[in-house]
């Protein structure tokens, strides 16, 4: 993990968010444990797609746990918390995947939350054209953010911005959420100006990347729905429940 040191020019909000970041090793261990078959005490071996679905479910559960610990979010009533997460669940999952690939740093393979590395040639051969297309589009964004030198401080702030990216008119507690949005935007702007003064438009470039995260997440939801219609999704799948939930 990238070591963090505080210091001048790191806004308080970003410092707090860094402290809230889950330990990647613990998340990996929990999810690997969940994917094992408790009855037989050995790794479960469903079809790869079914395993990926359960992996995505468990990753989202980790994201919900992170959100519940987040300042402002934890002060909101459950109804507002649900509204926010229903708005951004797929974007948070996509962004989680993107940042893992940036840390992974290999163009020819992707790293799963379980620590498994999958060659892109394997994805091309086994995943089907829709999923392969999604993975390749995500890899383009990884390259873009890598070129922008996205760092951990910016990552946590962007994640927080995604969580609060809904128009406040859909929420009960307008003022708290609006305040969080403004503070996170200001923190990211201050941070990028202070730490990347040679790249004056980094803040705008990062926000533009969030537009692509949104577009990718829409495509991912279309893919999930396609699999759902084809009866290929496991039962009691959390992501399908999120997909079908009433939107704001």
């Amino acid at each position: 993990a990238e070591p963090f040191s505080g210091g001048p020019g790191v806004p308080e909000l970003i410092l707090q968010l860094l402290q809230l970041e889950p330990d990647e090793d613990q998340v990996r261990a929990r999810i690997v444990g969940c994917l094992q078959d408790p009855a037989k005490g050995r790794p479960d071996q469903p079809a790869p797609f079914g395993l990926l679905c359960r992996m995505a479910d468990q990753t989202f559960i980790s994201i919900v746990d992170w959100a519940r610990r987040c300042m402002v979010f934890k002060e909101l009533e459950v109804a507002d918390q649900m509204t926010l997460l229903q708005n951004c669940w797929s974007e948070l999952l996509v962004f989680d995947h993107i940042y893992r690939q940036i840390q992974h740093g290999k163009e020819g393979s992707i790293l799963l939350v379980t620590g498994q590395e999958v060659e892109l040639t394997t994805v091309a051969a086994q995943a089907g054209s829709l999923l392969h297309g999604l993975v390749l589009r995500a890899q383009e964004l990884v390259l873009q953010l890598h070129a922008l030198q996205l760092d951990r401080q910016e990552f946590v702030c962007l994640k927080f911005l995604i969580l609060f990216s809904l128009d406040v008119k859909f929420l009960n507690n307008h003022s708290l959420v609006k305040d969080a949005q403004e503070k996170a935007n200001a923190a990211l702007l201050d941070y990028t100006l202070c730490h990347y003064p040679h790249c004056g438009d980094k803040f705008q470039q990062l926000l533009l990347c969030l537009v692509e995260v949104r577009a990718l997440s829409m495509q991912a939801k279309e893919y999930l729905y396609h699999k759902h219609l084809g009866n290929e999704m496991p039962r009691n799948n959390l992501l399908i429940e999120m997909l079908q939930a009433k939107q704001t």
Binding site: L85, Q86, N236, L238, A245, K246
Partner: peptide, 23 residues
Amino acid sequence: PCQGAAGRPAILYALLSPSVRAV
């Protein structure tokens, strides 16, 4: 899918609701 109160997803509600999580 399972729906909680007001047509909301039940699993997400269970993950967020303190009373449900405490059980």
